[in-house]
Design a protein around this nucleic acid. Structure first.
Lengths: 225, 225, 225, 225
DNA sequence: AATGAATGAGCTTTCATTCAT
DNA sequence: AATGAATGAAAGCTCATTCAT
């Protein structure tokens, strides 16, 4: 639930000591998320973040050692969010193709409801390399586990297990670029066109599972819903 | 040959007026390329660039209207370079798979000999959006033309022509991320492992061309060279 | 008491928070006054001002949004000073002529003890137009009120009330130019010669009040003091 | 005749050597006049001036030793113009009042047809002090001669000759301020209201010549024209 | 004599971080 | 622990002037 009303959030002091501490930290992270999401890492000044968080400027340094530290903390925090969203979205799928399709859609759902996320993700590579690496590590590891499992279940036998990592990178890359171009392209944010999702899943299924060469394949058997 | 020794290059005045002018402009671009490649757009100050170029600070503004302008000029200039390199690399291929494989290798060759390029490419999205958009436009258009031609030659009949754009984005994304992780991963620059290239091309071929499900496919028939 | 020794003033922190703040702001204004008074608006750099004020450069922007802002603040601040000085000087006068004479002298007294003022006033027209307009508005309005009152008391019946504004401009102009030439002329600052003051007041009295043509007028009845 | 079409003037080479030289110098002065008149001394860069003059940047320094030099040359050059215009305007007047009135109008005529002039005059005090002093010297000397003559002819007997200088400063000041407020006030340039001219001349005539105290003077006998 | 590119001093402004309160 | 004022390094950019051609 990274959403939140726009204006300055005032930290409401809660009961125990540590809880208040935690609340401020949270508040700063939330504020940073908004600020970065709106104006980018480059312009996310400590002043802006603390203002949005409703705390004094100096307070910042009681919770983070440097501006860079909070920037690096941003993506991993959101990443967890995203992962759990995707996990949910994938529930109920059975075959690899089903699961992949659902999680693909889950990813784009998440983007739609968390518009800041993509900018944070995208710029992190440059501005929060540590955070980016950590995030990437996490999601690619999970993705890899998923592929391995499918592989052990006998899917895409044309690939050796040690090839799966490469495939993971390709799939993550694809998602990201498709988001970049179709969702966050020139004129504001739009939903991903269904046709793009279908082309993607077709390409991936064929790529991994293979398909008869003669393919009359223009009606991919995406899950009936 | 954008490479060059590290230290300050001194501009040697050449014969005619315009030639010298051109030489300085070139020199500044070259310097910017180095600086950005090494420390990123964010830290590429005009001072650093002019120092590296061996000219006075003020001189910069005789050739570029602003710092941003040279940053935006960087990628398109290098992009041309890259494209012609890849074109060369692809010469002699016949089938889609052959051409794709060769140009894929060509891309990674280029990265190897132009180590700055990747950082410039990667950060451009954030720091030189105009330049990045222009570059992306160019390469995806070319890529699309290539896919369309193959499609008209009867390759990957499982895809409709209007799906090819999506495929192009996936392929470009894949290259980029593979470069990011295998070539510019944690410990300095390394060549792309051949196994990764093979996995990539296998995935793409299957993805587009299809393959018998029973695939004994672990010996991809990449072109014999 | 805007006077002060030349060198860097060190801000002595006073008791309460707000007081110190106010002290620094004052200090900056005072410093700006000195700097502008000595080398003119054009050369009054933020660096110079903060140095003279004895604070760090960045501190400046905690108190003023821009260099221009402090420049615009200068004249209105001093203008208030001047007005109250003149008001004081005029106390006790009765007729128009008496009041005018006293306030004229008051003006020149003020210049004498606030030597920076004149340059600030003079250049403001160009460098701090907002401040200048505000100042001019204030003093001409006050002057006009004064003339109107005298007029209602039956003085200078040769003029209609709507002519008084024009007269005000003439009188302000006269003061300013006389200061420019006699006080701040070529060789440093000098007091206004009494003879000039007398000529001025004679000219104004005749101009407004009239005088017998045959005037034996070389002994103007300026107030006996 | 300082007027001239707007765009870049191209210097047309004329017959003799020295003439061309003179033409370029003239051209630069003319250009500077325009530039300063439009954007003020502060923003009148050498580049702008040479561009407007249609000569190379470097050429400037063949004709003036510094930017300041041309700025100082500006007002005296225009001042001559103005003086001859005023002289013309005054032709035919007989009494002091007549002559003064005519030259006063002549001054405002000149402003009307040479709109740049006032800005140049006004800012010169700050930006071209040498030029300003020279100009002021010239015009006040001439004015003084005029007053002296009238004085010797028996006008304003209430004043001693040594008082006339002070009067001159007052009169020049008055003109300038009236121009500033009525002609170049807030909303662009406007002609001087006739009523202001009348008030001025009335004030001056009375001031110098005296008038019966009982004055029913609201119909000043300005010259019948 | 005319040129215009090269230069660097100097400007205003931003902002992460420190630290006294 | 919370604060916010103070700080100064560093940035982009302008422009009068020089000078080689």
């Amino acid at each position: 639930m990274p959403s939140d009303a726009a204006a300055t959030q005032k930290v409401r002091p809660i009961g125990k000591r540590g809880e208040k501490s935690e609340a401020i930290r949270e508040s700063l992270l939330r504020a940073a998320e908004h600020v970065v999401g709106e104006i980018g890492y480059a312009n996310a000044s400590v002043t802006l973040i603390t203002q949005k968080a409703g705390v004094g400027q100096g307070t910042f340094y009681n919770y983070f050692q440097s501006r860079q530290e909070i920037l690096d903390a941003l993506l991993p925090a959101l990443g967890k969010d995203m992962l759990s969203h995707i996990k949910n979205a994938a529930l109920g799928g059975h075959s690899f193709a089903e699961l992949e399709y659902r999680s693909f859609r889950g990813f784009f759902d998440y983007l739609e409801q968390t518009p800041h996320f993509f900018r944070i993700l995208n710029e992190a590579d440059v501005f929060a390399p540590k955070g980016h690496a950590e995030h990437f590590e996490t999601i690619s590891a999970r993705y890899l586990r998923f592929l391995r499992q499918s592989h052990q279940n006998g899917e895409f036998p044309a690939f050796r297990e040690d090839e799966l990592e490469t495939v993971v990178f390709i799939l993550i890359a694809a998602r990201t670029y498709l988001a970049m171009h179709y969702v966050f392209g020139e004129d504001g944010q739009k939903p991903l066109p269904e046709s793009v999702a279908e082309t993607y899943i077709k390409f991936v299924r064929y790529g991994l599972e293979g398909v008869p060469r003669s393919a009359d394949a223009n009606e991919p058997e995406k899950e009936k819903q």
